[in-house]
């Protein structure tokens, strides 16, 4: 996490002094202070802060309104509410505008440190996920195909850099991923490829399309499940679990790949090409 650049918004000079003292004791840098809403909004526009502490009562407005304005301009600003007022309604309102954590005054050092750590630990965990999910899914699909199909397995991860949609080759399977960050995995292949793979695995040429569908469901389930286990191994608090597969089959299906962090691959095998897409969204409930 390191040293954070922080702005304190509070109408009381006493509170500002207390918070500044605590934050600096923990090695952070208080680079701005603001005593009213108007000034806080202006300062937030002008500077970049890792964290903003927000009082709920300000002379020219309230902390909810002020946070809402600040978040309009900088969507990813992290705001902690620190106020003497704390009831269910105000917490709900704070959560609704995007405030991350709510602390009640008087705040002690430990409480403040813990709240900040929790907030930024989430950030670091997401980075771990972001930096490792691609390898986890590639390793997972590669080892499955190598073991079950054999032959040459080639993963091309540059073929489809920024496509927002993908035309299905015939059968598409989606698996939902649930955990600290939720996500999903899609595997798509033609009926021929699915049939070829099923024949090879079962060592029997007389396979129906229903068996092939059962194969690709299980294939996707194993690939997503193994990849999530690999990621859970990096940090247990990911808590990733997979939902059962849903299969889509048709000649005219377009898959929308979504607007969250995701990556597509073409996996070339001797029995045909496989398309895989996996991704996770950043949003998580930090109040849990």
């Amino acid at each position: 996490m390191g040293s954070l650049k922080i702005m304190i918004v509070d109408d009381s000079t006493f509170s500002v002094a207390v918070l500044k003292n605590m934050l600096e004791k923990s090695g952070h840098e208080v680079v701005a202070t603001s005593f009213n809403m108007h000034d806080a909004i202006e300062q937030a526009k002008a500077g970049t802060f890792d964290l903003i502490t927000m009082d709920m009562t300000l002379p020219d407005g309230d902390g909810i309104e002020c946070s809402k304005e600040i978040l309009k301009n900088t969507n990813d600003a992290k705001i902690i509410a620190i106020s003497s007022m704390m009831d269910e309604e105000i917490i709900k309102n704070a959560l609704d505008v995007g405030i991350k954590t709510y602390l009640q005054k008087p705040v002690n050092q430990n409480e403040l440190d813990a709240a900040i750590e929790r907030l930024f630990e989430g950030e670091e965990l997401y980075d771990i996920l972001k930096n490792n999910y691609e390898d986890a899914f590639k390793e997972s699909i590669f080892s499955f195909l190598k073991r079950e199909i054999g032959g040459e397995i080639l993963i091309d991860d540059n073929a489809l850099t920024s496509a927002a949609t993908r035309n299905s080759s015939g059968i598409s399977v989606t698996i939902g991923i649930i955990g600290r960050h939720s996500g999903r995995c899609v595997i798509d292949m033609s009926e021929d490829t699915a049939l070829n793979m099923t024949k090879k695995i079962l060592q029997d040429d007389g396979q129906s399309i229903d068996t092939a569908i059962a194969f690709i469901s299980e294939f996707t389930n194993v690939v997503a499940g193994n990849a999530c286990s690999l990621l859970n191994g990096l940090n247990r608090s990911f808590g990733l679990r997979v939902s059962p597969p849903t299969v889509f089959r048709g000649n005219d299906i377009t898959i929308s790949l979504g607007d969250f962090l995701n990556k597509s691959y073409i996996i070339k095998t001797d029995l045909g090409d496989v398309f895989m897409n996996a991704g996770f969204q950043k949003v998580m409930n930090e109040w849990k």
Partner: peptide, 19 residues
């Protein structure tokens, strides 16, 4: 219960099998 990210597809005559 917890929920995953949605996956959106579109097309004609999509045959759907669930778990």
């Amino acid at each position: 219960v917890d929920i995953s990210v949605p996956t959106l597809m579109y097309g004609d005559d999509i045959e759907l099998s669930m778990n």
